[in-house]
Design a protein around this nucleic acid. Structure first.
Lengths: 168, 168
DNA sequence: GAAAATAAGTCAACATGGCTGACATAAAAA
DNA sequence: TTTTTATGTCAGCCATGTTGACTTATTTTC
């Protein structure tokens, strides 16, 4: 994969490019999240709530353990936001049928509405960005972002908790 | 800039691609920062301290207002971490000569050492990622990340608080 | 030269979202 | 039957963001 064709970009240029990338990462992530944060604040939810809503929406029927695995936080931290989301009617729980210890998580209609709205905003930003560059740039972006991930995260992406096929 | 040549990628594919990008943003940023966080924790500093050290290192002699403008936090928030960094010898202040109200910020030797070490780690991650893809992918990554920024952030990047030339 | 604006700092209180440790209950697995 | 697992809960701590109010120099403006 490492390309031989790269001749020898001078070191200082590489250094500058790398530092610039660090800064882009910081600023792009901040701008990216702040838009969603603003929207969520209007319904008195924070970023942590959004993450739960997003990943439950993405994996309907996910159990708590798998969700914790994705979020990489403690169950006590999750408990706080999840309880609130259940109390306020964004998420509902269902006892697992195979394993009755499990509480499977689903979005309510209200939860789906919010998820769609925030995801729409975030997709819009990416869509705008993607439209302003070439297809190859988009491919390049995806390739670099994937290469930034830890092994553990890659495994997570490759083995989603619930097969996309089995939910109706 | 919007390219006409994009024919018509099917909508569901675009949707999936956009959602995948959202997730990459979340996971890549998390993996990216967690490595630095671990290192900083060893010297009892957090992410907020690191940001200050990074941007002061990047803009030696920056004043408080400009730093606040970059970080986009309140002065009370900055005060907490900045005071701590001064107390523990990572940052020093110097009264401005033109405007004596200003406190210009510089890294100490200790501050520079830490900055270098953490930046080295983060650069390493980008260098590894960049090496594993083509040059065009790197260019594409940079292009997309730039397109993700808010106008205000772009202005910030284009008008750094201190001209890089004038510091010795 | 007086008044207003600006740069910086400080105190107090509060919100969010991480964390640890300890312990409980039900169900599945060994 | 014992052990392990999935989930939840209480209590408290920490980092880092927020608002609001007020002070002190210094510079700018009228």
């Amino acid at each position: 994969m490492a390309d031989i064709k790269t001749p020898h970009r001078p070191l200082f240029l590489r250094e500058e490019e790398l530092r610039y990338s660090i800064e882009l990462m910081f600023f792009a992530y901040r701008d990216f999240t702040s838009e969603a944060d603003t929207h969520l604040a209007r319904v008195n939810l924070g970023r942590a709530h959004h993450r739960v809503i997003y990943f439950v929406g993405r994996n309907p029927g996910i159990n708590v353990r798998d969700l914790l695995n994705i979020l990489n936080i403690t169950k006590q931290s999750l408990s706080r936001v999840l309880s609130h989301l259940i109390d306020t009617g964004y998420v509902r729980q269902k006892q697992g049928s195979a394993d009755k210890r499990q509480r499977l998580l689903y979005l309510t209609q209200q939860g789906e509405a919010l998820e769609h709205e925030v995801t729409r905003l975030q997709c819009q930003r990416f869509a705008r960005a993607f439209k302003s560059v070439s297809d190859e740039s988009v491919t390049g972006f995806l390739a670099v972002m994937e290469s930034m991930l830890d092994e553990k995260t890659i495994a997570l992406l490759r083995h989603p908790p619930i097969s996309k096929k089995q939910d109706p």
